[in-house]
Design a protein around this nucleic acid. Structure first.
Lengths: 149, 149
DNA sequence: TCCGAATAGATGTATATGCATCTATTCCAG
DNA sequence: CTGGAATAGATGCATATACATCTATTCGGA
């Protein structure tokens, strides 16, 4: 009998959520020596790519509600991994990696890379790349429609 | 300028999580007249497909930790939408839809279908089906490896 | 038979996520 | 310039999710 296989789900959303849960568990396990979750690592990685950025724009990039970021960034801020400045528009909060945040991120990268490499190998390089592109295209399509008047 | 487009992310996991967030927001909005979240709808839909099932098996099907189900099922149980029996193995909880749960599920199906249809149209039927199959294959591959000794 | 190992969930805690609502600031029509 | 509309976040609350740990039950070998 072995492992009962998992059935396809009729719901596109449930299919995505299930995949996200399953994959997240692997990345979280890989990152656990650093104390980072995959959500937190993703924030550091995004900041390392964008440089200083407003909270709202960061939310757009990650398709994450700005008020969600208020909470998750707060956890990261308590660790001293980010800096926050008031923007020229004084309603804005401009976020950037602190030196400690850069160091923490760099410590975590090899563990993240390991998880990513293992997952890509499991799925197959070709299929993995293809999948990632498709998911990104889908995300772009939804996000673009979202931002219409 | 319009809407700043969202960049590709280097992390496979972050790509999945972002897609799941974005899609979930649409389904949650569509289901809101019923008071169901997409997570809760997915549970009702899964139960409607499996019939009576143990909590553990339900967790396998949805790639959801069994203790997570303790919490989420509890919310649903408060509404009277599920029934729980102790199994022949008395450690097990066997879950099934109550009549009220069936009714609630059936009320929600058209709204879910609407969201699903709109999303599939946005992505394109062909691409949508392709994407869903790829994600399911990937999920299966990960879940199968997971369940090795 | 009996006892330790394994399994199914329950409980407590921490993070993740979004909405409704609120405040502070900016923008814009008049 | 001014006052109302719009915008950027903050706050409080509810749900989503998983892990560590605990209890109850079952299983398997001596």
């Amino acid at each position: 009998m072995g492992h009962p296989s998992i059935p396809a789900l009729p719901c596109l959303c449930a299919t995505f959520r299930r995949a996200a849960r399953l994959v997240s568990q692997r990345y979280d396990a890989a990152l656990s020596p650093t104390g980072l979750t995959i959500t937190q690592f993703t924030l550091l990685q995004a900041l390392s790519l964008t440089g200083e950025v407003s909270q709202g724009r960061l939310g757009e990039i990650l398709a994450m509600d700005s008020t969600t970021l208020t909470h998750t960034l707060d956890i990261i801020r308590r660790h001293g991994w980010i800096e926050r400045r008031v923007g020229a528009d004084r309603r804005q909060r401009r976020i950037s990696l602190s030196p400690a945040g850069k160091a923490q991120f760099e410590r975590a990268v090899p563990l993240w890379q390991q998880a990513q490499t293992e997952l890509r190998a499991l799925l197959g390089e070709q299929r993995s790349t293809n999948l990632m592109n498709l998911v990104h295209q889908a995300t772009s399509a939804v996000a673009e429609q979202e931002s219409l008047p």
